[in-house]
């Protein structure tokens, strides 16, 4: 039983780490601020969930998994909200999205500036 759990948790942690790396790579490579924000989103939803799930499977007492669940819940609440706040702040400050080379501004829907 515990061997199965260990394998499952290892798989979750491995996948989570891979997603984290993906996010970091995107964060480093993408040319535009908003695109980088998307890359952060990858690492923050699924990777967090996977790593926390992996840790939960490792616990042997009953309290830590509950705390991890709470942490996951709060991260899932706050991280998209933080991304939105950041996008909104950048938009307010006049940062406009660019194309994938980071050179030209994107066409915006009518009425936006």
């Amino acid at each position: 039983m515990s061997a199965v759990l260990a394998i499952l948790s290892g798989a979750c942690l491995l996948l989570g780490s891979f997603l984290l790396l993906t996010g970091a790579l995107g964060f480093l490579r993408f040319a535009d601020f908003y695109a980088r924000l998307h890359a952060c989103g990858v690492t923050e939803t699924l990777a967090t969930a996977l790593i926390i799930l992996g840790l939960m499977l490792l616990s042997d007492s009953y309290l830590p998994p509950f705390k991890l669940l709470l942490i996951l819940l709060f991260v899932l609440f706050s991280s998209p909200t933080a991304s939105h706040a950041l996008a909104k702040a950048a938009w307010n400050a006049g940062v406009r999205p660019r194309d994938n080379q980071g050179k030209r501004d994107l066409p915006l829907p009518a009425g936006e500036r």
Partner: peptide, 10 residues
């Protein structure tokens, strides 16, 4: 500057 904010949040 927002890249830095994003980095801090990350």
């Amino acid at each position: 500057v927002f890249d830095r904010v994003m980095a801090a949040n990350l």
